[in-house]
Nucleic acid binder design. Structure first.
Length: 142
DNA sequence: GCCAACGTTGGC
DNA sequence: GCCAACGTTGGC
């Protein structure tokens, strides 16, 4: 079981729309590193949902419900999508500002490689983010 | 709105 | 294969 983080501009596709739809295929990734991360996602992995650009913050947790397949929005065989569903809205969003204040979180690609839109998250990082969000990690896994 | 970072494209 | 030009992302 792995952890991930995906970015979306809320003006393009927000957490609220995601919750309303209850399920989406994560399309539009056109970067090989991000694509490789999509391919590595397994059913049941938890995915932090990050709003970029406008009030940058992690706002919710999604779960992978279908592993990668051809991106239906293009004929190009290079690109894939995964299906994710909302798992839990965060009690308190965790802002980029807060993340930058935590020593443990300084190695995240979110900070080191700000343009990557799909990235792995370490368990220790995930736990720290849950702590900042006032979430009970034990409950999340139940 | 500006600009830094960085990935991609294309000329040579 | 190198590198300049250019486009995009995303923080501020």
């Amino acid at each position: 079981m792995q952890y991930w983080l995906v970015k979306s501009e809320p003006d393009v596709y927000s957490w609220d729309i995601f919750v309303a739809e209850q399920r989406t295929f994560w399309n539009g990734v056109r970067n090989y590193q991000a694509r490789n991360n999509l391919k590595a996602m397994k059913k049941g992995d938890l995915v932090l949902f990050y709003h970029s650009v406008t009030n940058p913050a992690i706002v919710g947790i999604a779960i992978v419900i279908q592993e990668f397949y051809q991106d239906p929005s293009t004929e190009d065989k290079n690109w894939v999508v995964v299906d994710i569903a909302p798992h839990k809205i965060l009690s308190k969003p965790v802002s980029l500002k807060q993340i930058k204040l935590e020593a443990i979180l300084q190695d995240m690609a979110l900070i080191k490689q700000s343009r990557l839109s799909v990235m792995p998250v370490k368990a220790i990082e995930f736990d720290k983010i849950m702590e900042l969000a006032d979430e009970d990690v034990a409950f999340l896994h139940s």
